[in-house]
Design a protein around this nucleic acid. Structure first.
Length: 217
DNA sequence: AACAGGACCAACCGCGCGAGG
DNA sequence: CCCTCGCGCGGTTGGTCCTGT
């Protein structure tokens, strides 16, 4: 049996107060991120390290972009989900300022419902047989995923603004290939367009994470 | 105005993985 | 090797807000 991540006694749970937020922000601004296990004590917080990490990454980080997803972001989430499945951290890594939690929540509350309404299975991005589609891009029911068309469109339209995915994505492709080896209809040429204005912040972000992606902006 | 049900989202939980001893 | 520990991830929960009746 695994031990709990932290001593449950003297540990606050639930919503964070403004004072707690400020303590965490102040501490990280001075000492930087990392060593989450020791941060609560050092910062004078009665929280476990995991809770501090989550609060910082999902809410307090200064580069977080909040608010509703625009159409480009939503499209990208759909495409990336079709490629990667529920790998929210990887998907969020392609959306500057968005967190995995936010992407996951947005998927579950908005996109998933939207796809279902359109007659598209959100798990495999294929049309349900027999259901009408209101998506003009999808015409070959049951044979092609929604992202194939969108991907091909992007690849054709953005030849000078492409992401070249290297070894991390090679690994990802292997995983996906083994997962889908019997039924995959995805085009695994993982060349995806991003808005050019985001490239620089994206590059910075990738340096901070292990998502090892080579960008040609 | 009051209530119910749904939607949204912050936070928690447990597991897997990698690093270090 | 094996074990322990810390970190990161994805799934889930629960509180709050919103909307319809």
């Amino acid at each position: 049996m695994r031990k709990p991540c932290c001593d449950k006694e003297n540990i606050n749970k639930g919503a964070w107060s403004k004072q707690e937020d400020q303590k965490l922000i102040d501490y990280i601004q001075v000492h930087g991120e990392g060593c989450w296990g020791s941060i609560p004590k050092a910062a004078g917080l009665y929280r476990c390290g995991k809770s501090c990490r989550l609060r910082w990454l999902n809410y307090l980080r200064p580069d977080i972009k909040r608010g509703i997803f625009d159409q480009d972001e939503e499209d990208l989430v759909i495409k990336l989900h079709a490629l990667l499945g529920n790998r929210w951290a990887l998907i969020a890594g392609r959306l500057p300022g968005r967190t995995d939690n936010e992407v996951k929540n947005y998927w579950n509350s908005h996109i998933r419902r939207k796809l279902i309404k359109m007659g598209i299975d959100p798990n495999n991005h294929k049309l349900h047989k027999g259901l009408p589609s209101i998506n003009p891009h999808v015409s070959n029911a049951g044979t092609s995923s929604i992202c194939d068309e969108a991907m091909n469109k992007d690849i054709n339209n953005n030849s000078n603004n492409k992401l070249s995915f290297n070894k991390s994505f090679d690994a990802m492709r292997k995983i996906e290939a083994s997962k889908n080896n019997s039924s995959s209809s995805l085009n695994l040429d993982l060349t995806i367009a991003l808005p050019s204005k985001d490239c620089e912040s994206q590059r910075t972000r990738d340096m901070d994470t292990d998502t090892d992606i080579d960008l040609n902006c």
